[in-house]
């Protein structure tokens, strides 16, 4: 009906703004800062500082890398030494390992490991009763037999067991200068395991880790509540279904620790199935005989 003429000129091009805020350039670029002569002095040091920081970080990175490289080289050379520093070794002649334990809960794994150790080295074992204890049964007092004094010089290791009033589990002391007392049956077992097998740490890490896990589970079995104990026993049952021993198809310190924990937590009577079979295998093994005499 109506035709309206356009009342605006659409051919005019409008400049769209493409920059909301315009900032001064932070680069000390002569081209960009020609009209900001005053602020040149302030900007340059900031940039310099940033660069410095970047350099410092790069330097630290390279130093760290060097350290890691050197450490990894050190670890590889550990093999050449018997078992690393701090761990008892018969390098300087006779080495005396002193373990103080309470007669109320004798560390059974110690006696199994001592038997295993004596197959590889010349080991002399003696036991003493400390003056802090009034009465100790003859079984414990004469655990290593009543043969008289032997000449210490003929042996590489001496294992001295002292029946004493200790609060927190057995304590091991080899060299008071290089380490503080090592507490706990598990830690002692770990030390002795490295003596038995000097290549413990450098060989299969997988095996070492699995043994460690089993040792920890053994401690749970010994000290945990009923639910935790039951869980460990179930775990045991499952693993022992697939092989005779816990780790690697042969007797390791994991089996020794677990056996000791089972004896101490009185789970032996209620053991069934694979666990029962495994316990019987252990009890039949020569190295366990001495420890069996201490099981009351």
């Amino acid at each position: 009906m109506y035709h309206l003429h356009s009342y605006f000129d659409s051919s005019v091009s409008v400049a769209q703004p493409d920059c909301v805020y315009k900032m001064k350039s932070v680069h000390a670029d002569g081209v960009c800062c020609t009209d900001q002569q005053k602020s040149v002095g302030v900007l340059d040091p900031e940039v310099a500082k940033l660069e410095e920081r970047q350099e410092a970080i790069l330097k630290r990175l390279s130093k760290l890398q060097e350290e890691v490289n050197s450490l990894s080289k050190q670890c590889l050379t550990c093999d050449s030494r018997a078992a690393g520093e701090g761990v008892p070794s018969p390098v300087n002649g006779l080495c005396d390992i002193v373990v103080s334990a309470s007669p109320n809960c004798p560390p059974l794994s110690l006696f199994v490991l001592q038997q295993l150790l004596s197959h590889q080295y010349r080991v002399m074992a003696v036991s003493h009763v400390h003056s802090s204890i009034q009465r100790v049964g003859d079984k414990l007092r004469n655990v290593f037999g009543t043969t008289p004094n032997r000449d210490r010089n003929g042996y590489q290791f001496v294992l001295t067991v002292i029946w004493k009033d200790v609060e927190c589990g057995p304590v091991m002391m080899v060299s008071p200068k290089s380490h503080s007392a090592i507490c706990g049956e598990a830690s002692i077992a770990r030390h002795l395991a490295r003596l038995l097998n000097p290549a413990y740490d450098s060989n299969s890490v997988d095996v070492a880790t699995r043994i460690d896990t089993w040792i920890d589970l053994a401690m749970t079995l010994a000290n945990g509540n009923n639910k935790e104990k039951a869980a460990v026993v179930r775990n045991l049952n499952g693993t022992l279904g697939k092989s005779d021993w816990l780790v690697g198809g042969q007797l390791t310190v994991a089996d020794v620790m677990m056996w000791s924990a089972m004896q101490q937590s009185k789970q032996v009577q209620s053991a069934t199935g694979n666990v029962r079979k495994w316990l019987d295998t252990c009890n039949g093994h020569a190295a366990f005989q001495l420890a069996l005499t201490l099981v009351s």
Partner: peptide
């Protein structure tokens, strides 16, 4: 006084 029995040698 603390001591061991048998005596430490």
């Amino acid at each position: 006084f603390r001591f061991l029995e048998p005596t430490l040698i």
